[in-house]
Amino acid sequence: MTTGRLTVLVVEDEKLIRRFLRSALEEEGCTVCEADGVGRGLTEAGACKPALVVLDLGLPDGDGVDFIHNFRAWSEAPILVLSARSNEQDKVRALDAGADDYLTKPFGVGELRARARALLRRHGRHGDAVDPVVEFGSVRVDLSQRSVLRNGEPVHLTPIEYRLLRVLLANSGKVMTQRHLLREVWGGDRVEHSPYLRVYVGHLRQKLEEDPTQPTYLLTETGVGYRFQPPVAALESS
């Protein structure tokens, strides 16, 4: 897909899980290096300079979040976190520490490959100019023109709604924690603003989604935050 083979670091203590992660990522055309703990993971990361890290949060020799902090100190490469379903707080901590996305165990190979592909692509085009025009459903947003059209008709957004939409679009596909969005849109991560966040996401859905109760693009990651899910066609074409 991209030039040359990209390296993916898998940090996971369970050997069998590493095995299918490796085969799935190799299917994607990546070179895989493995580590079974935080310590080994950091050493390997320094050695193989990965373009993506797949990280299990429950490691025997330490907290996966420590790995993220350490890794983020010197690398911008995306991190995909693996976590159990009931641990929303862990996911939020990992995302706030700098992880980019998460997968809930157990997960299918197809899902893993899709997430890995999206992260690699987003990271790969980092240097290029970001396309200011984003299209999803019947909506067309031009970030350079600050215009939002739905079926060709301009949609009126309040400044906060627009700011929120812009942050979500700029991080297309990435899970944004509540804290992150509050900081970006309102400034300061004041938790008492979180009802505002939910209300404004609701407004955006009313204005931009076909069925606001079953959104396709502006998705809730329950207990964690929100995500703009780009349309499949856009993924394929880029």
């Binding site: 069998l16 095995r19 157990p106």
Partner: peptide
């Protein structure tokens, strides 16, 4: 279970 689902899926 994660290993089982993942391995079967691969």
């Amino acid at each position: 279970l994660t290993a089982l689902v993942g391995l079967a899926d691969s």
